[in-house]
Design a protein around this nucleic acid. Structure first.
Lengths: 179, 179
DNA sequence: CGAAAGTGATTGCACGCGCAACTATAACAC
DNA sequence: GTGTTATAGTTGCGCGTGCAATCACTTTCG
């Protein structure tokens, strides 16, 4: 789990084409394509998925991710900080997002018994229901636009490669208190 | 150039592990890792690179990308719309970003002779100089955090895979008018 | 030619975000 | 126990963004 597979030895195999010298951008074409591809793919996918989810269920992508993390957590509850760490969002951003989700009835805040400073965000029944509906849409979208483009083996490779870039980001072990 | 290589035949090779049934998230672990990895890697990289570029040169990542596209365009100039399409930004967003860059003296707007509606954004000398300085920082950052994690062959694979997800996004042929 | 439709770019507006400051509570030192 | 430091979460503020409306100009059609 903690072995990120073989760290790549640069210039491992000979390039298929002629050795390309640094071009205008300072990155050679393959580097440019690999890097800019990441940016473009991320932008296009998140934009499409977010619009889809918001149109059909009134739940933007970022909210969906919060609900999803919450759903998978023990007791369907998590501390605010843990939630913020599990999601690509600052503390203040999460506070405001949870405000909206609470206003919409998808979750509630609950005090923590052993630490009066802390709050839990707890998924409501309605939250569970709305999430289940949204999940179908989202999963179909992710599969159609992204996952379906790869074989299972390739997905494994991708996951391994992400681990190289961001070591230790794979374990989303959300530690929820047994309050 | 227009052949995105073999479209993947799903379930191409046998999965290495036991066939994993749908888990809590509806995605099996490999799918989850491949998808969430993309999200996390993008977030972490853009955040780090943006901060680095802004701290050292006062040029946020999105501005850098605009300047870069402009730099590579013939005549170091491009139409606003073409520029917006080349960058992950809406038309209005680009208008405002170009406002800031013009205020900072990195580029200027120029009228288009054959279409009075259109404007060109043209890189200034200072823009070229500031970009050159920022480029060193940015390239080093991208290489260190991303490219160095892969062999050249792997980068080719990555580029090919992006092409599968976003067909036709690889050619950034910016058509600048010869005004 | 003159009206209508189309296109390039900008602006009004509201929203979501992060940073930094702040409140409240907890943990620790002496 | 009291003072100090650390931590959890929220709020004030400014900024960057997209959408929709708008302006200016061009193209098309009667």
């Amino acid at each position: 789990m903690a072995t990120p597979t073989t760290p790549p030895t640069n210039e491992g195999a000979g390039p298929p084409g002629p050795a390309v010298t640094d071009h205008g951008a300072g990155l050679n074409p393959r580097e440019l394509a690999a890097w800019r591809g990441l940016l473009r793919v991320h932008a296009a996918l998140t934009k499409a998925l977010d619009a889809e989810l918001d149109d059909e269920h009134g739940i933007p992508l970022i909210s969906y991710e919060v609900l999803m993390v919450l759903h998978d957590a023990p007791g369907r509850r998590m501390r605010m900080s843990d939630l913020a760490d599990s999601v690509i969002l600052s503390r203040s951003g999460l506070t405001r997002l949870v405000d909206r989700l609470e206003r919409d009835g998808l979750l509630v805040r609950a005090a923590c018994c052993d630490d009066a400073r802390g709050s839990f965000a707890v998924l409501t029944e309605e939250g569970v229901a709305r999430l289940a509906a949204a999940r179908r849409t989202h999963l179909a979208g992710v599969r159609e636009r992204f996952l379906s483009r790869f074989t299972p083996d390739e997905l494994d490779v991708l996951a391994l490669w992400w681990e190289r870039v961001l070591p230790g980001a794979g374990d989303a072990t959300a530690h929820a208190g047994e309050c």
